[in-house]
Simulated scan of single mutants.
Amino acid sequence: MSTALWYALAAAAANLMGGLVITAHSAAGRATQRFLIAFGAGFMIATALVGMIPHAMEAGESAVVAVLLGYLLVHFTQHVLVAHFHFGEETHSEHMVSRWVGISALLGLLLHTFFDGVAIASGFHVGSWLGMLVFIAILLHKVPEGVTVASIMLASGNSARRAIGAVAMLGVSTVAGVVLTEHVRILASTGLALSAGVTLYVGASNLVPEVQKKRSWSSALAVFLGAGTFYLTYLLVRGYLEP
């Protein structure tokens, strides 16, 4: 089993953790969720801009188009195909008029989680240091991601069992992203650029708006803390793992 696949399985487990947080109704879990959303936003944006896009550009200027395509694909699946979607716990039950709303949100997230796996595999193709940094960035939003799909499923009238099943599907999608990247040529060649666009979208367009909904110094500063932690980790990890 490849190194990237082991990390994808760990990321999938974090999805399940987020689903269990919501179905267990833990107040402490919700506080952790808010911090992870803010910290993860800063870490993911820094990972995309400093770690992933510069290396994706080594394949040529066409990589910029792939970055943009990855960004727009997530927007299309989460905010065009899906009527109501945001990261974090779903508390607006008035939007949840049928079980299909939860299922459509799940379908929208599956592309995103697939490219989480593509990002992990593509990062390790560049080097262990980048694979590790991409994994950390993805891991940080996996718990809020599990929270998102589980809470939408519950708010739209689905059972707790279906909610956990939906979260498990996200994990399977991440693992599939790793496996296919190792066997599908187009993903192996453009996967880093596509997943950089996806990572940038999740950090800047999914997580940051959630941070901005509630005025909080701790959440606002956590974004800077996430970006700063990325850069320090980038220097340390690259120094130890890059040959």
Rank of each mutant, 00 (worst) to 15 (best):
R34M: 13
A83K: 12
L235R: 13
G191K: 02
L235K: 12
T23N: 10
V198A: 07
L68A: 14
L170I: 07
H183W: 10
W217R: 15
V126E: 10
Y71M: 07
T148C: 12
G146I: 01
V208K: 00
S216R: 00
T113G: 07
S218H: 14
V80F: 13
W6P: 00
S93G: 10
A196Q: 01
A227M: 09
R30V: 05
T190A: 14
G108L: 00
H92M: 12
A24W: 08
S128F: 04
M96E: 11
V126W: 00
V50A: 13
G157E: 13
L73M: 05
G146Y: 09
I37W: 01
V178G: 04
H79V: 09
V118E: 01
R238D: 11
S216E: 08
V134W: 00
E61F: 11
L111G: 10
S26V: 09
L133A: 04
G117V: 04
N206K: 14
V74L: 01
A10F: 08
G123D: 00
G127R: 03
G197K: 01
A222K: 03
H112C: 10
L72V: 15
V21H: 11
P144V: 13
L69R: 07
M153D: 02
Y7T: 05
S104L: 13
V208L: 15
L180P: 07
H55E: 12
E145L: 12
L69S: 14
F124M: 11
K142N: 15
V175I: 15
A8T: 08
P144L: 12
P243T: 10
V208G: 08
A46P: 11
G127C: 02
K214L: 14
A222C: 06
H86W: 10
R30L: 11
N158R: 07
H79Q: 12
S2F: 01
A137Q: 05
R185C: 04
F224E: 05
V211C: 06
G239A: 13
M132W: 06
A24F: 11
F114P: 04
A38K: 02
R99S: 06
L192E: 00
A27D: 10
V149A: 08
H92N: 12
G191M: 03
L232M: 08
H112L: 15
H125V: 00
V211H: 04
A48I: 05
A160Y: 10
R161T: 08
A24G: 14
V184I: 15
V65R: 12
Y71F: 15
V211W: 04
T174C: 03
A150H: 02
L194P: 03
S151D: 06
L235G: 09
L110R: 02
T190N: 14
V21M: 12
A66V: 10
L180G: 01
L81I: 00
S104W: 12
A188D: 11
H95K: 01
L133Q: 07
H125R: 07
G19C: 04
S122H: 00
L16F: 04
A56M: 06
E145T: 15
F35L: 15
L140Y: 08
E210V: 05
L200G: 05
A41N: 02
Y234P: 05
